[in-house]
């Protein structure tokens, strides 16, 4: 399963790699990283058919996570089936949640990230 993680914080990359080191070692999950919405769109244009799940921060300079989500939902609806998108934010309020879901997100997570919860969700979506 190929997952794209979008976050402007560089340390997110070693964090995901270490948190999922067993899954990576067992070739269950493969990660690709992007540090902005624009970069994420480039990645998707090149290899979107392989990516089944996108985890994106909302609050980023330039294109925000919500804008990225809108692009994804508009530009990538041809088969194969659209990727699962989960939004991540430091503001865990109702309004953010509602907006993310309205824009077509599949799920919503708050920082600090609870990885055991995330793994649970990945299992559900991976099935």
């Amino acid at each position: 399963m190929k997952i794209l993680v979008v976050d402007d914080e560089a340390d997110v990359q070693p964090l995901f790699i270490q948190r999922f080191r067993k899954e990576i070692k067992n070739n269950e999950i493969e990660f690709t990283f992007a540090q902005s919405g624009e970069e994420a769109l480039n990645v998707l244009h090149e290899a979107h058919s392989e990516i089944v799940l996108i985890l994106s921060d909302i609050n980023m300079p330039g294109m925000s996570g919500l804008e990225l989500l809108t692009h994804i939902r508009h530009d990538f609806h041809n088969p194969p089936p659209p990727p699962v998108v989960m939004m991540i934010t430091a503001y865990g309020d109702e309004e953010n949640h509602r907006q993310a879901m309205e824009n077509g997100a599949d799920d919503f997570l708050t920082k600090p990230l609870d990885f055991s919860l995330l793994k649970e969700k990945l299992k559900t979506f991976g099935e």
Binding site: E9, D11, L15, Q18, R19, N59, A90, Y91, K111, P112, L113, F115
Partner: peptide, 16 residues
């Protein structure tokens, strides 16, 4: 907002 981001790393890296 400024403080949640570093906290995310502190919590997760220490668990790792």
């Amino acid at each position: 907002h400024e403080i949640q981001n570093p906290l995310n790393f502190v919590n997760n890296f220490s668990e790792v």
